[in-house]
Deep mutational scan, measured.
Amino acid sequence: SEIVKHAEEALERGEFVRIEHNGRVIEIRNEEALEELRRWVEK
C-alpha cells in the first residue's frame, strides 16, 4: 500500500510519520509500529 511504503521510506531516513486513517491517528516511529500499520491497512 502507498501508506505503508511512505512510512517505510520515512523510517529508513530516520523520520517518523503520523498517519490519519478512518478517523484514527497512528504514529510510525519503529518497525513495531510499521507492522501495526500493515495489519491496520489490510483490514
Rank of each mutant, 00 (worst) to 15 (best):
L37N: 00
R39K: 13
E42A: 13
E32C: 10
V4I: 15
E12Q: 15
V17I: 14
K5M: 06
I3K: 12
L37P: 00
E36M: 13
R38P: 00
I26L: 11
I28N: 00
E36R: 12
R38W: 03
S1V: 11
S1E: 11
V25E: 05
G14N: 06
L37M: 03
E42S: 12
V41W: 09
A33H: 11
K43T: 11
G23T: 01
R24C: 12
S1F: 14
A10N: 03
K5G: 04
R24M: 11
A33C: 12
V17C: 13
N30P: 01
E9W: 08
R39I: 11
G14L: 04
K43F: 14
F16N: 06
H6M: 15
L11I: 07
V17D: 02
E15P: 01
R39Q: 12
E20S: 09
A7H: 01
H21C: 15
R18C: 14
E35K: 08
V4R: 02
A10G: 05
N22P: 00
N30G: 07
L34F: 03
R39H: 09
E15C: 14
F16I: 13
A33R: 05
L37R: 00
L34P: 00
R13T: 04
E12F: 13
R18V: 15
H6Q: 14
A33V: 05
E32S: 09
S1N: 11
W40K: 02
R29H: 11
R13Y: 02
H6R: 15
H21G: 01
R39A: 13
N22Q: 10
R13D: 02
L11H: 03
V41M: 11
A33F: 05
L37S: 00
E36L: 12
I19H: 02
I19A: 04
R39C: 09
K43H: 12
E9V: 07
R18P: 01
N22E: 11
A7D: 01
I28Y: 01
K5S: 06
E31K: 15
E27A: 07
R18D: 03
F16T: 10
G23N: 06
E2S: 13
F16R: 06
V25Y: 09
I3W: 12
E8I: 13
E8A: 14
V4D: 01
N30W: 05
V41S: 04
R29E: 07
H21P: 00
E27K: 05
E20L: 14
E31Y: 15
E32W: 11
F16G: 05
E31N: 11
K5N: 05
E27P: 03
K43W: 14
V41R: 03
